[in-house]
Design a protein around this nucleic acid. Sequence first.
DNA 1: CATGAATGAGGGTTCATTCAT
DNA 2: CATGAATGAACCCTCATTCAT
Lengths: 218, 218, 218, 218
Amino acid sequence: MVVVVRTTKRLPRAERERQMMDAAVQVFGRRGYRGASMDEVAELAGVSKPLVYLYLKSKEDLFTACIRREAQALTRAVRAGVRRDLPPDRQLWEGLRAFFRHTADHPDGWTVLHVQARTHGEPFAAEVAALRAELVSFVTQLTVVAARAAHRDPDLPEREVAGLAEALVGAAESLAAWANATEGVCAREAAATLMNFAWAGLDNLMAGRPWTPPADQD
Amino acid sequence: MVVVVRTTKRLPRAERERQMMDAAVQVFGRRGYRGASMDEVAELAGVSKPLVYLYLKSKEDLFTACIRREAQALTRAVRAGVRRDLPPDRQLWEGLRAFFRHTADHPDGWTVLHVQARTHGEPFAAEVAALRAELVSFVTQLTVVAARAAHRDPDLPEREVAGLAEALVGAAESLAAWANATEGVCAREAAATLMNFAWAGLDNLMAGRPWTPPADQD
Amino acid sequence: MVVVVRTTKRLPRAERERQMMDAAVQVFGRRGYRGASMDEVAELAGVSKPLVYLYLKSKEDLFTACIRREAQALTRAVRAGVRRDLPPDRQLWEGLRAFFRHTADHPDGWTVLHVQARTHGEPFAAEVAALRAELVSFVTQLTVVAARAAHRDPDLPEREVAGLAEALVGAAESLAAWANATEGVCAREAAATLMNFAWAGLDNLMAGRPWTPPADQD
Amino acid sequence: MVVVVRTTKRLPRAERERQMMDAAVQVFGRRGYRGASMDEVAELAGVSKPLVYLYLKSKEDLFTACIRREAQALTRAVRAGVRRDLPPDRQLWEGLRAFFRHTADHPDGWTVLHVQARTHGEPFAAEVAALRAELVSFVTQLTVVAARAAHRDPDLPEREVAGLAEALVGAAESLAAWANATEGVCAREAAATLMNFAWAGLDNLMAGRPWTPPADQD
DNA sequence: CATGAATGAGGGTTCATTCAT
DNA sequence: CATGAATGAACCCTCATTCAT
């Protein structure tokens, strides 16, 4: 079969859309929603502007699509990073590592989720809220299971557990942005900092009794 | 409750500037730097656009002035909320409460500081860096003092302290939003949750050894 | 009856650019650089303002482009009007006629070159300097050739030649305006007057020895 | 009688107006009519803006007043520089010298007259036309008288004399602007260049027979 | 008088978005 | 499909000009 390769390759729609969204995430992440121009997105994606509109409808829709995609990728990465047969602290540790690894590998995507999406009215905030809910539920489950497994009833009302989970996720989010922006901070270090903070508490940290991350192979 | 008083009166410059900056903080906080329009700022302030320019020079200068003012107000509030003669955990507790109180009372100001100011390069970085340094220094001091008081050496490198501060702020932010959105959770409870999270650590919490907030009268 | 033809047709870029520059020369010539508004240019060109910016980048670039185009047109017209095999006085005569003809046919272009372009520093200076150099070089060549042909050394320093060119242009401009305003004076007569003024000098004129314009057919 | 001298001196109106117009001529000359701002004029004059409006009504009126004043000053200077008992070529020479001296001493005023006033519609152009008419009439008279005095009837129709006068004045105007803009060209040199050009003609110049300026004491 | 306070109107520029080819 | 041509709507900023004190 002979295939004539034109300089302007015809790609299947899904592939083209992926290219555009890759470009869009980069541009939105670096310039912000308002600062991003559809011209730049189109150019970076290597397609013409009308094509972007044909496939993705509008700037707002494009942004929403980016958020949704990046949020899914992140939750998937976190879930995939955890092995349910380990003890709770190891599970949390691995979840955090997966989280920080992913945000470090996709800094623009993370910026879009963490910084840009929150600055722009309802439609975008809803997407991000869903992401956060997902993560919070993950942590909550972990905590409750951990308590039960240890036959300790912390006597924490469900509401307080939810609050703690919120706090942890918020801390993780902030730390991820900070780690991305700060030279020389690797994902592992960020995870360890937060793990220590969350697990042992400041008091234990200061007492020289940090939580000890397990030795593993990455 | 905000009442818009259509004062057509001539006001002294200082007062008008305050009005304009109040409006600007609101608009910048809700729309972001790029999304904010000087027209909206002027209208919200109840003045004409040229007056905004006459007094505050440019959008950039206006934004810088807002950041500076809000940063000062916040650090002042936190410092004022802390009594240096108390033990470290009480100091942290009070600092957090003051922080929560202030950011809850000035949500747009806090958004400007935390979200908007970081998204926009060079010109504003200096102002935000100063605020961050101030807060980090506060936490650092607290930690070091606490360690000395307990004759322990926390041996935390400066970078780790910055990371902890970052995590704390993220957790606080997350909790504040959660407290707002969840029925029946007051700010005080949010502060206690965070304090527990930060001070005692999850492990202690689950073991039924939470940090106990002191009884006080607000 | 004048019918405004609302050509909604799409034109190739080159043609649209020409239309825009035609309009721009008119507006710049009549209102000056500062007084000209891009709105007026766009309207006169029959296009929307963004298109002007898309093609010509900025007001400054548009002005520069106008100067360059008009300068080229003028120098080309003068050079085309002169036959190098004639004696110097005939050459000057023909150059002047071509100059008068062209500036009379493109009054706004001439205004842009002579009046507007000089009022605005740096960016345009280069273009205007090039035009001036071109014209001065024309006069200089003429003078030198004439002198050599007569085995005489005019010994005029370069600066003086520039001054003479300046005086010539000023006189020409003045005469053109006068010819326009005075009933019954045609362009040819204006040219003859200037030629007399320039070539023979007042003294010779008063002594009844004017330079005699050749009989030609236009 | 005790007079309290305030830091803000009260000057008679005429004096204040002079100050404002001095400032205005400077600003208009340097920035052009559109580029000049009333703020700058007021500041340079050392008065408040409303005072400028109180005394001079509007920007347009201020500009007109400047033109009128500068035009009067120039014609007065030229007339004052000429002694009617000298031979015509000396009279022309002295007139030119006075003209170039004055324009060199008041470059901003001259720019206002020569460049700025012509770029802005009817009302201003009329003032400048009056100035030019005055100068042309001066030169015309001179030429006619000179011819009669020399008992030479050049047989020039009145109209041609007018044309020559126009040419001379135009040349002078252009040269004055050029002399002001060109480093190292003094008023005397400009006058000599023009005198040579006008009196002897290019042909004589090239033949090494220039008109000889008389030795005088300035 | 003299001044600080205040604004209507407009100008340069950009951008998301749509057609005709 | 892909693209060059084209625009409505806004946005930042400035300026001549006027009041109230």
